[in-house]
């Protein structure tokens, strides 16, 4: 177990290093001088020089990379060119929206999908299965941001149940923010829940065909007991894989959905940064998103080991 943990931990750190290298390298190939790229054609040489200094563009690339890396480890992501504030501070503010939204959506998706998938598998071929399969087939095909627009259209514009967007901020208390995040979370969660429910269903059906389930039935377990006690835990293994992948989809989805609901999250930050050519901010936010995905993959690996003893080799 300890060895498994260690090897996963090492691969986590390696992935982070390689990812940071890739991001750094990609932004090095920006055609021309990043400073002039950011400032446009008519910048004065003085501001250019100042920006070059600030961007840390002076010096060899390996040194600048190490400088950037060391800075991030201290929580120093550089200074945003457009906002004139530390990027770390910007990210911290915006993550307060994006991260809760992602987690909210993930919780919703899981809470809907797992029971739906189980019901469909247990009642395979019957009405409830067909209903789940039909709805999820549709759910997979719906782009989350369009679903979000429809929700706004119905619940905000027609029914006036909620406001069509905005975010009060956490200082206003938890409840108003949860309400503000509910429509976006539903819009994000349903398409993902459709995928997850189908995976849950097919994993469970697969598990139902295994020999050990026949063994369990021969011991005197009812079909329901056999599903709960034996099939479920085995079916979780492929479901965990999808859950891990879903985090990255949800995070990316959150970035898009923020546009529909005018939520001041990481998505809005990064798109503004792109239009304003704020490379420092782009670089840092991308690194942060990728790091989040890598860390979640690491957690998924740990969850595997918790479910599947074959991964916890003694030693």
């Amino acid at each position: 177990m300890l060895r498994y943990l260690l090897s996963r931990l090492i691969s986590l750190v390696l992935s982070l290093i390689v990812a940071s290298l890739v991001i750094f390298a990609v932004l090095q190939v920006v055609p021309g001088d990043p400073a002039s790229f950011m400032l446009g054609m008519n910048a004065s040489p003085d501001t250019m020089a100042a920006l070059r200094e600030q961007l840390g563009l002076n010096g060899p690339a390996p040194l600048r990379y190490l400088h950037w890396l060391a800075g991030m480890l201290h929580g120093d992501f550089g200074l945003s060119y457009t906002y004139k504030t530390p990027v770390a501070q910007l990210i911290a503010q915006r993550a307060q929206v994006s991260l809760p939204l992602t987690i909210y959506a993930m919780a919703l998706s899981t809470l809907i999908a797992i029971p739906a998938g189980m019901v469909a598998a247990a009642r395979r071929g019957r009405a409830s299965d067909l209903a789940v399969m039909g709805v999820t087939q549709l759910g997979i095909a719906v782009p989350n941001f369009w679903f979000a627009m429809l929700l706004v259209l119905i619940f905000a514009i027609r029914l006036h149940w909620v406001s069509s967007g905005g975010f009060p901020g956490w200082q206003a208390g938890i409840w108003p923010n949860l309400v503000a995040l509910t429509l976006p979370a539903i819009a994000l969660a349903l398409p993902q829940a459709s995928i997850l429910a189908r995976v849950m269903r097919s994993a469970l059906i697969e598990a139902l065909h295994q020999d050990y389930l026949r063994t369990a039935r021969a011991k005197g377990l009812t079909q329901g007991q056999a599903i709960r006690r034996h099939a479920f835990r085995n079916a979780l293994i492929p479901v965990l894989t999808i859950l891990g992948l879903q985090f990255s989809f949800l995070l990316a989805g959150a970035i898009i959905i923020e546009n529909v609901f005018y939520l001041p999250g990481l998505g809005r930050l990064i798109f503004q940064a792109i239009t304003q050519r704020d490379l420092i901010t782009v670089q840092s936010v991308v690194m942060l998103l990728v790091a989040a995905v890598i860390v979640v993959n690491f957690l998924t690996d740990l969850a595997y080991a918790a479910v599947d003893p074959r991964l916890r080799r003694p030693g």
Binding site: V286, V290, N297
Partner: peptide
């Protein structure tokens, strides 16, 4: 695995 850490949007 590394590419999987960069979703297509990123």
């Amino acid at each position: 695995d590394l590419i999987f850490a960069f979703p297509s949007l990123v």
